[in-house]
Simulated assay, not measured.
Amino acid sequence: MATLLVRGIEESLVQRLREQAAANGRSAEAEHRAILAQALGGTHRRSLAEVLASIPDVGQDADFERVQEAGEARRVFD
Protein backbone atom coordinates (compact mmCIF):
# COMPACT_ATOMS: atom_id res chain seq x y z
CA MET A 1 0.00 0.00 0.00
CA ALA A 2 1.05 3.56 -0.61
CA THR A 3 1.52 6.29 1.97
CA LEU A 4 -0.16 9.65 1.56
CA LEU A 5 1.08 12.77 3.34
CA VAL A 6 -1.17 15.83 3.32
CA ARG A 7 0.33 19.14 4.42
CA GLY A 8 -1.17 22.53 5.08
CA ILE A 9 -4.51 21.38 6.51
CA GLU A 10 -6.38 23.91 8.66
CA GLU A 11 -6.44 22.95 12.33
CA SER A 12 -10.25 23.26 12.44
CA LEU A 13 -10.53 20.67 9.65
CA VAL A 14 -8.16 18.32 11.46
CA GLN A 15 -10.25 18.73 14.62
CA ARG A 16 -13.44 17.89 12.72
CA LEU A 17 -11.72 14.82 11.29
CA ARG A 18 -10.75 13.69 14.80
CA GLU A 19 -14.29 14.27 16.07
CA GLN A 20 -15.84 12.38 13.17
CA ALA A 21 -13.36 9.53 13.64
CA ALA A 22 -14.24 9.30 17.34
CA ALA A 23 -17.95 9.29 16.53
CA ASN A 24 -17.37 6.40 14.12
CA GLY A 25 -15.08 4.52 16.52
CA ARG A 26 -12.01 4.80 14.30
CA SER A 27 -8.63 6.45 14.37
CA ALA A 28 -8.20 9.72 12.48
CA GLU A 29 -6.08 7.84 9.94
CA ALA A 30 -8.77 5.18 9.40
CA GLU A 31 -11.40 7.91 9.09
CA HIS A 32 -9.25 9.70 6.51
CA ARG A 33 -8.98 6.47 4.49
CA ALA A 34 -12.73 5.94 4.67
CA ILE A 35 -13.44 9.50 3.52
CA LEU A 36 -11.04 9.15 0.58
CA ALA A 37 -12.49 5.78 -0.43
CA GLN A 38 -16.04 7.16 -0.32
CA ALA A 39 -15.13 10.34 -2.22
CA LEU A 40 -13.22 8.51 -4.92
CA GLY A 41 -15.63 5.64 -5.37
CA GLY A 42 -13.75 3.04 -3.38
CA THR A 43 -12.81 -0.22 -5.01
CA HIS A 44 -16.22 -1.92 -5.11
CA ARG A 45 -17.12 -3.15 -8.57
CA ARG A 46 -20.68 -4.25 -9.15
CA SER A 47 -21.21 -7.79 -10.34
CA LEU A 48 -23.05 -8.52 -13.57
CA ALA A 49 -26.01 -9.69 -11.50
CA GLU A 50 -26.10 -6.32 -9.65
CA VAL A 51 -25.93 -4.40 -12.93
CA LEU A 52 -28.70 -6.46 -14.50
CA ALA A 53 -30.87 -6.16 -11.40
CA SER A 54 -30.54 -2.36 -11.56
CA ILE A 55 -31.99 -2.14 -15.09
CA PRO A 56 -35.53 -0.75 -14.79
CA ASP A 57 -38.51 -2.78 -15.97
CA VAL A 58 -39.75 -0.78 -18.95
CA GLY A 59 -42.34 -3.09 -20.44
CA GLN A 60 -43.07 -6.46 -21.98
CA ASP A 61 -41.12 -7.99 -24.86
CA ALA A 62 -44.19 -7.54 -27.07
CA ASP A 63 -43.98 -3.77 -26.53
CA PHE A 64 -40.71 -3.77 -28.47
CA GLU A 65 -41.67 -6.20 -31.19
CA ARG A 66 -40.87 -5.03 -34.70
CA VAL A 67 -43.85 -4.84 -37.03
CA GLN A 68 -42.98 -5.67 -40.61
CA GLU A 69 -45.19 -4.29 -43.36
CA ALA A 70 -46.59 -6.82 -45.84
CA GLY A 71 -44.66 -6.92 -49.08
CA GLU A 72 -41.66 -5.17 -47.61
CA ALA A 73 -38.33 -6.92 -47.95
CA ARG A 74 -36.93 -8.11 -44.64
CA ARG A 75 -34.36 -5.62 -43.35
CA VAL A 76 -31.69 -7.50 -41.50
CA PHE A 77 -29.25 -4.74 -40.50
CA ASP A 78 -31.61 -2.08 -39.09
Rank of each mutant, 00 (worst) to 15 (best):
M1V: 05
M1Y: 04
A2R: 08
A2C: 10
A2H: 03
A2Y: 02
T3R: 14
T3P: 04
T3G: 09
L4Y: 01
L4P: 01
L4N: 04
L5R: 12
L5S: 05
V6I: 15
V6D: 04
R7D: 12
R7F: 02
G8H: 11
G8S: 13
G8F: 11
I9Q: 05
I9R: 02
I9T: 09
E10M: 07
E11W: 00
E11D: 15
E11M: 04
L13V: 13
L13C: 03
L13H: 03
V14Y: 02
R16D: 12
R16E: 12
L17N: 07
L17I: 14
L17C: 03
R18K: 15
R18N: 11
E19T: 09
E19I: 12
E19P: 02
Q20P: 00
A21D: 08
A22P: 00
A23C: 02
N24L: 12
N24Q: 15
N24H: 13
N24P: 00
G25W: 08
R26D: 03
R26N: 13
S27L: 08
A28N: 05
A28Y: 12
A28H: 07
E29V: 11
A30G: 07
E31A: 10
E31L: 00
H32Q: 06
H32N: 03
H32I: 01
R33T: 02
R33H: 15
R33K: 11
R33G: 07
R33D: 14
A34I: 08
A34T: 14
A34P: 07
I35L: 15
I35T: 11
L36S: 04
L36E: 04
A37K: 15
Q38P: 00
Q38W: 03
A39H: 04
A39Q: 13
A39G: 06
G42W: 09
G42T: 08
T43G: 07
H44I: 07
H44C: 03
R45K: 14
R45W: 03
R45N: 08
R46P: 01
R46I: 01
R46W: 02
S47D: 00
L48A: 06
L48E: 06
L48V: 04
A49Q: 12
L52P: 00
L52Y: 03
A53S: 13
A53F: 02
S54D: 13
S54M: 05
I55D: 00
D57M: 09
V58F: 11
G59Q: 11
G59L: 08
G59H: 05
Q60D: 14
Q60V: 10
D61C: 01
D61P: 11
D61G: 01
D61R: 04
A62F: 04
A62Y: 00
D63S: 06
D63W: 00
F64D: 05
F64K: 01
F64I: 11
E65Y: 11
E65R: 15
E65I: 12
E65H: 08
R66D: 07
V67Y: 11
V67T: 12
Q68C: 01
Q68H: 09
Q68A: 09
Q68T: 15
E69S: 10
E69T: 05
A70L: 03
A70D: 01
A70C: 00
E72R: 09
E72T: 12
R74V: 05
R75E: 09
V76C: 01
V76F: 14
V76Y: 14
F77H: 14
F77C: 04
F77E: 10
F77A: 10
